[in-house]
């Protein structure tokens, strides 16, 4: 069953076709990587999937709902309810502690629940760092907090934008392991990256070039212990 489906989606800025008649679909529970050089339309696609932008043409179905023509207010609601976001720059509220940052997400979604937020931190192995401010956390720790934040409201889709772009290899592996766990639990993951190693961890890689889908690669080795 497809969770996300793009049908002939184009995004045009003036003369520039950032996305040019793109169609793709992502199934429920699938782990998909989106790759491509800069200027290939990755960010535009990410914005559209993340309900932060609307396509100029085409349909975007998220969980069966066409989000391509919704108002930005409605898009905010959909994003809040269905999507967990992870960013390259981590993006934490720098004056709130790790657990409070997770509670911010709960606050906008429904109800702040410190216990649940602490459990989410436990899950990413940062229970004992809950009361630290972002400035007191390493980059890898911050990104793990962001993973915990992204999954706190049980989203249909986790959308990660270069999640390991600012991490060293050790932390990159920790984050990828977390993704693998989430995948096992049935979470749908879309990871935008230019790092082939990160793309290789996914089941399928969609390669964008000049605003079009250049090719799709199925990862034959998916699920096998390649890092051993």
């Amino acid at each position: 069953m497809s969770l996300l489906e793009l049908k002939n989606v184009s995004k045009i800025y003036g003369d520039l076709k950032a996305l040019d008649n793109v169609s793709l679909h992502v199934d429920q529970g699938e782990w998909v990587a989106i790759m491509g050089p800069s200027g290939s339309g990755k960010s535009t696609m990410m914005n559209i999937i993340g309900c932060m932008d609307k396509p100029t043409m085409g349909e975007v179905l998220l969980d069966g709902v066409d989000i391509s023509k919704e108002s930005s207010k409605k898009l905010t609601d959909i994003r809040r309810d269905k999507i967990g976001l992870i960013f390259q720059q981590f993006h934490m509220v720098n004056y709130l502690t790790a657990v409070e940052n997770i509670m911010v997400s709960q606050y906008y979604h429904s109800m702040p629940d410190e216990k649940e937020a602490l459990e989410a931190l436990e899950r990413v192995g940062l229970r004992e760092r809950a009361r630290h401010l972002p400035s007191q956390l390493s980059g890898g720790e911050q990104q793990r907090v962001c993973v915990a934040r992204a999954l706190i409201n049980h989203p249909e889709l986790i959308l990660a934008d270069e999640p390991t772009g600012n991490l060293d290899e050790a932390n990159e592996n920790i984050v990828l392991d977390l993704f693998a766990q989430l995948h096992k639990e049935g979470t749908t993951l879309i990871v935008v990256t230019h790092d082939p190693e990160v793309a290789d961890a996914a089941q399928r890689t969609i390669v964008l070039e000049h605003g079009k889908v250049a090719r799709e690669v199925i990862n034959e080795n998916f699920g096998k212990e390649t890092k051993a």
């Binding site: 720059q89 509220v93 997400s105 906008y108």
Partner: peptide, 16 residues
Amino acid sequence: RREIGLRKALGASDQS
């Protein structure tokens, strides 16, 4: 700006 953007990305309404 980025914090506000983040809040909005996390689902904060204009009202919030």
